[in-house]
Amino acid sequence: MSLKKAIFIIICVLLIDQISKIYIKTHFELDETVPVFSWFKIVFVENEGMAWGTKLSDVFSFISDKSAKLILTLFRIVAVTAIGFWLVDVIKKEKTKLLIFAIALIFSGALGNIIDSVFYGVLFNDSVMEVATFLPEDGGYANVFHGNVVDMLHFPLWSGVLPEWIPFLGGKYISFFDPVFNVADMAISTGIGILIVFNKRAFKDTIKTDTIFQESHNNPV
């Protein structure tokens, strides 16, 4: 796969991700819910931290919420930069299309969430009890690098009380699937899933090259 095709994939994911987020941000109040099907809802939430809403300040109590948010955003920028270099490298080395596609998905998803973290705080005002305005006159709800990631996709596929015979969880009320996520999260998860499930196929050229190198090293001419 060429660099142009990879960039096209990245742009498509970013456009879908950002258009959906901006629409939700400018049309929904925080925590507003719109049922689409019994198993699918649009729910506007904002994620201040990492996956599942976990904050660095929850893990390290000596770090303030503001500092934790800045550290997380900077880490994301470093991570997406590394992923970008990896993507360019595998394209130059003409690795498998599946590997390039997966990395492009991961890169676009990570970049989509970084845009929220870096810019949304200054581009929008607060969404609590109101619909946010784009470029508000009174300024945004946070400083640059301190924005929240917009999530909206919720799939409550099943909920109920588990049978008593199930170890540890028997008799407890369970709701699956609770997390609310966005298009960028889907891209990241899909890319990682491809690398895990189709690992041998994705890294086929890499494995072949490493084997040839090892054989030539062990059997010098």
Rank of each mutant, 00 (worst) to 15 (best):
L74A: 10
L98W: 13
D65C: 01
L162D: 01
P136I: 13
A104N: 07
M152H: 04
P163I: 05
I192W: 01
I16E: 02
K55R: 15
A82C: 15
V221Q: 14
I115K: 09
Y141D: 06
I188M: 15
F145V: 11
D178F: 10
L157N: 08
A51P: 00
P167L: 11
S117R: 14
I115A: 11
V144H: 01
F44A: 11
F176V: 13
E137V: 10
I106A: 12
A142Q: 07
L157F: 15
T33I: 14
I166G: 02
F44D: 01
I91H: 02
L169I: 11
K172D: 06
L123H: 05
P179W: 07
K21I: 15
K208H: 13
N219C: 10
D65H: 12
T26R: 07
N199P: 01
A132K: 10
V180F: 05
T96E: 15
K97T: 11
W158T: 08
V149H: 07
N148F: 08
K5M: 12
S61K: 15
K208Y: 07
A82D: 00
Q214M: 13
G109T: 10
F198M: 14
E94F: 06
A79R: 00
S57T: 14
A51L: 09
K93H: 12
T206Q: 14
A202P: 06
T33G: 02
A102F: 06
I9Y: 14
P163F: 01
G49N: 07
P220T: 02
A68L: 08
H154Q: 08
R76N: 13
L14F: 12
V43N: 13
V183F: 12
